[in-house]
């Protein structure tokens, strides 16, 4: 059980993912985004090697739809997989296999895909899209986080009639550089989406300071002083 929103920012071309799930440390999958190439985020019964494979094919010029056909040809258990792929021209492809079990579904938009499995029902996916679309001019990271908050608020995950907690969550945005612009994680928490929001708000307060420390550390104030000033503010 997992739900995700992946998107290419229509204003900046940045790629990002917001995801949350019952299993621990969903944010360990850095291999799923590649700057100026695309996103491939697989879930449900996912094979770890698939996302880097898909990105290698995107980098060679394959379209997402063609890559999906290649994956299908090569996989006797394709009907257990769920994935989304976006390339740098906003080609979006998503697939939800019919044999995943629990309720699973997807919504594909012009530059995004929202999808999940083990969900309360279609309302979770609708909630993700509503959250993501609530402020189309917001920065991509804010939109992605609102997406998973929307999914949570719409009912989130369910198994055998019971609400199941999201225990890990991940927010990653890549821009032009090889390393991510934002990469924040909650690996194990009872209220993981709220915890990710808390960390994201703290990140925004500190981001400029940390960027400057890296770029020109000569005049940087001591970190612990800056942090106590920020908490006092």
């Amino acid at each position: 059980m997992t739900y995700s929103i992946i998107a290419r920012c229509p204003h900046t071309g940045r790629f990002g993912v917001g995801t949350t799930t019952f299993s621990l440390a969903c944010g360990r999958r850095n291999e799923s985004l590649r700057p100026n190439v695309g996103i491939s985020k697989s879930q449900a019964f996912y094979l770890r090697r698939i996302d880097p494979f898909v990105l290698n094919l995107l980098a060679q010029g394959y379209t997402p739809a063609h890559i999906a056909r290649l994956l299908e040809e090569d996989d006797p258990d394709f009907e257990y997989r769920q994935f989304g792929i976006i390339d740098r021209e906003n080609n979006v492809f998503a697939y939800t296999g019919p044999r995943i079990g629990q309720w699973a579904g997807q919504r594909v938009g012009p530059y995004y895909a929202a999808y999940g499995n083990g969900l309360a029902g279609p309302e979770t996916v609708e909630g993700i899209v509503a959250g993501f679309m609530s402020d189309p001019d917001a920065p991509l990271e804010e939109r992605l986080l609102r997406g998973i908050e929307g999914g949570r608020d719409a009912g989130g995950q369910r198994f055998k009639g019971q609400r199941r907690p999201e225990r890990s969550a991940w927010l990653r945005v890549v821009d032009r550089l090889d390393w991510p612009r934002i990469d924040l994680r909650v690996d194990m928490h009872d209220r993981t989406v709220a915890e990710l929001r808390r960390i994201f708000e703290e990140f925004k307060r500190c981001d400029a300071y940390y960027q400057e420390c890296s770029r020109d550390p000569r005049n940087a104030k001591p970190e612990e002083v800056v942090m106590s000033e920020l908490s006092a503010a």
Binding site: G27, R29, P52, R185, D187, M188, R198, E202
Partner: peptide, 20 residues
């Protein structure tokens, strides 16, 4: 041996992060 991690665990903002 893979082109992805064997293990990758993090705590991003919590006092007592190592125990967590």
């Amino acid at each position: 041996k893979h082109d992805y991690s064997d293990i990758d665990l993090r705590v991003d903002l919590q006092d007592g992060a190592i125990a967590a």
